[in-house]
């Protein structure tokens, strides 16, 4: 523990509700321990606001361990702040210099409407997942671990894609508010595994359709999403999604009009 303390000026986006216009309000964060996380720093500012009878700054948070995907806002134009592969709850104040002025804004995207201050509604992601980000066919009982043949590289790649926590930083960082990184991570994760094969084409078709229907933009390959991602989800996922989607639209067979006899 270094025990060092710093002082900061915060310009925080305050917005009373979804319909309010919102604006930046200046606060002083005094005597902040360098060992505190960014959220703990905002907590202490909030304590002060509450003691003065003011409304505290609303922000999303839950596990504060960087694994749940609840937290996230933008610090000086960067989703989850200046550090790579880090959620804002795992960002520590030692990364900021004494006397700095930080501008804190909510994730901005039409499909992520602001609920209040730094809180945004990310249920558009839930709707993409519910379009196909799961396996609904019965794969039978759990078989012997080594009975399911899968190359190690594929298993590793699927695991990397599966680490997405759905925080929405990719959308926040993208100039087009594209959800391509998020959607492609889920499509990749299952397309690479044997269990995902049965619904592979349908998943690609339905999840891309849902992504577009939620009003997210398209991918310009700026790479801002990958840079902002706290879980280092790779841009190659988007390439795989594009291929999966193309293959699915080109080769999907039409459904039979009547169901079979079962």
């Amino acid at each position: 523990m270094s025990g060092k303390h710093i002082n900061l000026t915060l310009k925080v986006w305050r917005q009373k509700g979804p319909k309010d216009h919102g604006s930046l309000v200046e606060y002083q964060a005094k005597n902040v321990s360098e060992d505190a996380s960014f959220l703990e720093m905002v907590d202490s500012v909030n304590e002060e606001l509450i003691s003065k009878g003011d409304e505290p700054i609303a922000f999303d948070h839950d596990c504060r361990e960087g694994i749940c995907g609840s937290c996230g806002f933008v610090i000086d134009g960067e989703a989850h702040g200046p550090l790579k592969s880090t959620t804002v709850c795992q960002l520590h104040m030692r990364n900021f210099s004494d006397g700095a002025t930080l501008t804190i804004e909510p994730f901005r995207a039409k499909s992520f409407p602001v609920i209040k201050d730094l809180m945004v509604d990310r249920s558009a992601f839930d709707r993409i997942i519910s379009a196909g980000g799961f396996i609904s066919v019965n794969n039978g009982n759990a078989v012997d671990a080594n009975a399911v043949l899968i190359p190690k590289t594929d298993a590793d790649e699927a695991m990397s894609s599966a680490t997405c926590i759905g925080c929405g930083a990719c959308v926040a960082a993208c100039k087009n508010a594209s959800a391509a990184l998020f959607t492609s991570a889920k499509i990749s994760h299952m397309a690479l595994l044997p269990q995902g094969q049965v619904e592979r084409k349908e998943r690609a078709l339905n999840m891309v359709a849902a992504m577009d229907a939620q009003g997210f933009g398209s991918c310009t390959t700026t790479g801002a999403c990958e840079a902002a991602c706290p879980k280092e989800i790779q841009l190659t996922n988007i390439s795989r999604m594009n291929r999966e989607y193309f293959a699915a639209t080109a080769t999907k067979r039409p459904k039979h009009k009547d169901g079979g006899a079962g």
Partner: peptide
Amino acid sequence: YVVVSQGKKKA
């Protein structure tokens, strides 16, 4: 955004 990214995460 009011402030545009200038750091490591800039495109």
